[in-house]
């Protein structure tokens, strides 16, 4: 039959998590259709139609989908499910929110955060904070899947899919969006940045994170954090990298004042290169770091900024 990918976007911009999910979908069941559920999201549908490997884009444009609230999303996806044998979403906080509702209503198990498509019904997924990888086979019937997007590469090239407007499926009226407080930043998003510099409890305060921001600006990097730094209120929750935060896999991850707990490693150990600055030479982060510097961060980080300036960054 076909697979349906639910697009990740903010009504203006299509997130690259979508292209990666399309890449996973193409390995499961073709052709691949993309559902853009949003409000005033025409430009997003347009962008989705240009993704390589997409045959058709369905655009459901309605106020009910402006913030992808789970209950109307469930109704919409279920109204389309009959035509597809696989339904996929990226494992973003949106995908994690609405997809299990879809699976439950279809009476199928969801396969969460797949890392690899082994066969059309067989997938690898991480368990125990990524300390084990399970290969699971889904039963016959529809597949409902969320995708760990760091594990897939977007297909290259451009597509020219048609965009079909579809009608909304109604809002059950039991939930509504009230407001949001989004972190504003000129820097790249954590999940798509090529370089990330993250701070931990060792940073001691939110103000001290400015040291990391200065370096981030020189390297066009995103700034991340450990749970301890978020819990202490140094930085907002959306900075958290780890088992229960964001999973990232940049070209370079620089961990500053982070010990390297299992739960933190779960979110960054697939980075291509890891550098760590920590004053404790026994810190577990050094067991995964390609380059480790045992030093006081309050000396090393300002020095790094100076050296980068000297090098012309």
């Amino acid at each position: 039959m076909a697979s349906l990918v639910i697009a990740e976007h903010d009504n203006k911009v299509l997130k690259d998590a979508t292209a990666k999910t399309v890449a996973a979908a193409a390995q499961i069941s073709s052709p691949v259709h993309v559902l853009v559920a949003g409000s005033g999201a025409g430009a997003v549908a347009e962008a989705a139609s240009k993704l390589a490997g997409v045959e058709k884009v369905l655009l459901a444009d309605d106020a009910a989908y402006a913030k992808m609230v789970a209950e109307p999303m469930e109704k919409l996806i279920l109204s389309l499910a009959g035509s597809y044998d696989a339904i996929l979403a990226p494992a973003t906080t949106n995908g994690k929110n609405y997809m299990p509702r879809v699976a439950a209503k279809l009476d199928v198990p969801q396969v969460s955060e797949i890392l690899k498509v082994v066969g059309p019904d067989t997938f690898e997924r991480p368990i125990y904070a990524g300390n084990a990888i399970a290969t699971v086979q889904a039963p016959a019937g529809k597949k409902v899947i969320t995708v760990r997007t760091t594990a897939f590469k977007a297909a290259e090239g451009a597509g020219s899919a048609s965009v079909e407007k579809i009608s909304a499926a109604g809002d059950p009226g039991i939930s509504k969006f009230i407001g949001e407080e989004l972190s504003k930043s000129e820097r790249p998003e954590l999940t798509s940045a090529k370089i990330i510099i993250s701070g931990g409890r060792g940073m001691q305060s939110g103000d001290n994170f400015h040291m990391l921001e200065k370096i981030a600006d020189k390297l066009h990097a995103a700034v991340g954090a450990s749970r301890a730094a978020v819990d202490a209120g140094f930085v907002p929750n959306d900075y958290q990298v780890g088992q229960t935060g964001k999973v990232v896999a940049p070209e370079l991850y620089i961990a500053v004042g982070i010990s390297g707990a299992i739960q933190h490693l779960a979110g960054m150990k697939d980075s291509k290169v890891i550098a760590a600055i920590n004053k404790d030479e026994e810190a577990p982060i050094f067991q995964v770091a390609d380059y480790g510097l045992v030093a006081d961060l309050f000396k090393a980080v300002p020095e790094m900024e100076e050296e980068l300036t000297k090098l012309g960054y």
């Binding site: 913030k67 939930s175 509504k176 949001e180 929750n237």
Partner: peptide
Amino acid sequence: EREIDGGLQTVEVK
């Protein structure tokens, strides 16, 4: 109030 990828979001549910 919910922790989401971009920050925090508030929903009202019955």
